[in-house]
């Protein structure tokens, strides 16, 4: 095992390419004259998988020893949670509460977050986002949603 990143990258390409190849077989392939919906994805999926294989093999044989480096688990968790929360609640809670919680969750991504600063950022961003998107750009999202019973 020489280059872990090469192997991971190759694996991802093989996996996605392969999945598309398998998926495209369930669509009509057609003839060269009239290519069906499955033909092009089949071709490109196979190319992706082949390139992925080549990357993985190259990583095994001639890859430079490379480390992944630190992975910011905390940031990943906080940002994913913030975005999922936004998608999940924007309709129900409305623009203002959803933006505030999303901003607050996002500030937690930084290891150097302090409570007061996080609250200040949350407040500032919520006001700014409301002014820019709802007041300025007239985005049609209710400020407060039906879940709040207002």
């Amino acid at each position: 095992m020489k280059s872990v990143p090469d192997l991971v990258a190759g694996g991802i390409f093989v996996l996605i390419g392969g999945a598309f190849v398998v998926g495209s077989l369930s669509y009509e392939l057609g003839t060269p004259l009239r290519m069906g919906p499955g033909a092009f994805p089949l071709l490109v999926g196979a190319i992706v998988a082949a390139l992925g294989l080549a990357i993985a093999v190259k990583g095994l044989v001639a890859g430079e020893v490379a480390e992944f480096g630190p992975i910011p688990w905390r940031a990943i968790a906080a940002i994913v949670a913030a975005l999922l929360f936004f998608g999940f609640t924007v309709r129900g809670l409305g623009f203002v509460p959803t933006s505030a919680v999303t901003a607050l969750l996002t500030t937690l991504a930084s290891k150097r977050v302090r409570l007061l600063a996080a609250l200040a950022v949350t407040g500032g961003l919520t006001v700014a986002a409301t002014l820019i998107f709802v007041v300025g750009l007239q985005l049609r999202i209710p400020l407060f949603g039906p879940w709040l019973g207002l």
Binding site: F88, G124, L125, A128, F133, I141
Partner: peptide, 25 residues
């Protein structure tokens, strides 16, 4: 620490406003 929450929030709002659909987020 101020900048990245802003980007994430604006990204969420921007993509949501594509079709008012949580799927895009």
């Amino acid at each position: 620490q101020v900048l990245f929450p802003m980007i994430i929030l604006f990204a969420a709002i921007g993509t949501y406003s594509l079709g008012f659909n949580a799927f895009d987020v």
